[in-house]
Nucleic acid binder design. Sequence first.
DNA 1: TAAGCTTTTCGGCAATTGCCTAACTCGACC
DNA 2: GGTCGAGTTAGGCAATTGCCGAAAAGCTTA
Lengths: 251, 251
Amino acid sequence: MIDEHFTNMLEKEKEALAKRIAGEITLSSDPGKTMRKWREIFGISQTELAEYLGVSSSVISDYEGGRRKSPGASTIRKFVEALLEIDEKRGGNVIRAFSKTFGSELPTNAILDIREFALPITIKDLVDAVKGEVVANMHLLDRRIYGYTVVDSIKAILEMSSEEFLKLYGWTTERALIFTKVTTGRSPMIAVRVQGLKPAVVVLHGVKKLDELAVKLAERERVPLIVSKAESEVELITGLRKLVEKTEKEF
Amino acid sequence: MIDEHFTNMLEKEKEALAKRIAGEITLSSDPGKTMRKWREIFGISQTELAEYLGVSSSVISDYEGGRRKSPGASTIRKFVEALLEIDEKRGGNVIRAFSKTFGSELPTNAILDIREFALPITIKDLVDAVKGEVVANMHLLDRRIYGYTVVDSIKAILEMSSEEFLKLYGWTTERALIFTKVTTGRSPMIAVRVQGLKPAVVVLHGVKKLDELAVKLAERERVPLIVSKAESEVELITGLRKLVEKTEKEF
DNA sequence: TAAGCTTTTCGGCAATTGCCTAACTCGACC
DNA sequence: GGTCGAGTTAGGCAATTGCCGAAAAGCTTA
C-alpha cells in the first residue's frame, strides 16, 4: 500500500518532468537546441537515442542541429519519452534529480546551493565565476556542464550517509561538484574516488594548503580540479548565481 | 522595486503555465482534443482565436477536430501564446486562477475544495455527482464545465470582501460554483447577480426551503441552478472528487 | 598515432502539415 | 421565420517534416 503510494508519486514526478521538457522544447525559439540540451543532461548519446527510437543517428543530429524548424508533436513526444525510459532503465537518477520528492530527502543544511544553467557552459566559464585556479586536467576545460551543487564539505562528511553521497554524485555527470570549508582537498577527492563516480568537475573552496594527493586523485579520475580563491562562500555562490543569470539572458 | 518583484513573479507564473499547457498538448495522444480543452478553459471562441492568429477559423476547428495528427512546435507555440495574451488583455483572470501566487491570496477557510477535471464534463454529470435536482434552466445541462469551487456560503459572506468575491467568479465561466450551508439560496443568487458575472452552473447544498427569488434570478441570468440532496458536505465533496478521478481515468 | 566510436552534413523523397476557400449546420435572439 | 455568429467538413496545394543513406569530420582512448 505504502509502496504503491510511493510508486504513484514517482510516476507523477516523471510525468511532470516529461511535461516540463516537452513544454520547454515546444515553446523554444530553437527547439533543436533545447532537445540537445536535455539529451545531454540525461547523458545519452545521439547514437544510443537513435537506436532506442529505431531511427538513424543522423535524424537526431538533424533535429538538434535545427534542420527541422518545427518538429511535430509526435516527434517531440517520442523524443521525451525515450529520454525518460532510457534513464529509468539506468536506475532513474536524472528523473530523481529533477523531482521534488528526491530533493526533500537530502540533508538540506549540507547543501548550500543547487542550480541549473539555462544553457550549457564550459568549465572555463566556471573557473572565472569562482575566481578559480586549475590544478589538474587543464586540457579538459571544454567540457559542458549543466549545473552545480555547492556542498559544505564538513557538514556533508559528518552528516551524510554513504547512500546519500551516492545520490549526490548520481545526479548527472554533467554537473560541477563544489566543496566549501576545505583545508587540503584530500577528503573530498578520496570521497570522489571511493564512490567511483565522476562529476564533470570538482571545485574546492577554502583550501589552506593543497594536498598533492588530491591532485593525483583528480588526474587519475580525469576530473578537472579547481581551487577557488573567492573570499567567502557568499562570494563563491554569488559568482555562480551571476553565471546562472547570464545563461538565462543568453537563452 | 517591490512592484518589479511582483511583476517578475507573475511573469514566471505565466511562463510556467505556458510550459504546462504546451507540454500537455505535445505529450497528448490527441493533441487537438487538448488544444480544445485549454481554449475552452480560457473561454475564447475559435473565431476570436483565429482572428488573433490571423488565420481562418476553419484552421482552429481542423486542429481541434484532430485533422492534423501531429501539429508542429511552431503551431502549438503560437496557439498557447495567443491564449495567454488574449487572457492578459482581458485582465489575466485565468492565468491568475492557475497560478500559485493567486491561490495563496484567497481566504482558504471559506473555500472547501477546488478541483479541475481532466476532461470537460457536462452539467448532467455534475448533477449526478452531487445527488442534485435541477430547479432552473434544465435546457442548459449540456454545457461543458472544467472544474468546480466549493464555498462555505456563510464564511464566504462573512469574510470575503467584494473584491475577493469578484476574484472567485472571475476564474472562468466554465466552472461550477457550489455553495454549502445554504438555507434558502437567496443570498448566493443575489451575490451572483450583483457581481454581474456568470458561473457555468450554481449548486446549492443544505437548502431547507428554496426561495422562489433564487429560481427567478437563476433563470434571468441563464445559470442552471441545482439543489444538492447530499447528506453532508463530506458526501458532496466525495461525489465531486469521484467525478474528478473518473475524468482522470478516461483521459 | 591509429582505431573505433560519435556526430555532422546533405541530397533525396514520400507523407504530412499549415492554411485557404466554400458550403453547410446549429443555436440564440429579435 | 430570418439573421447572425460560432463551428464543422472537405477538397486543394505549396511548404515542410520525418526519415534514409553515404561521405566526411570530429573526438576519445589505448
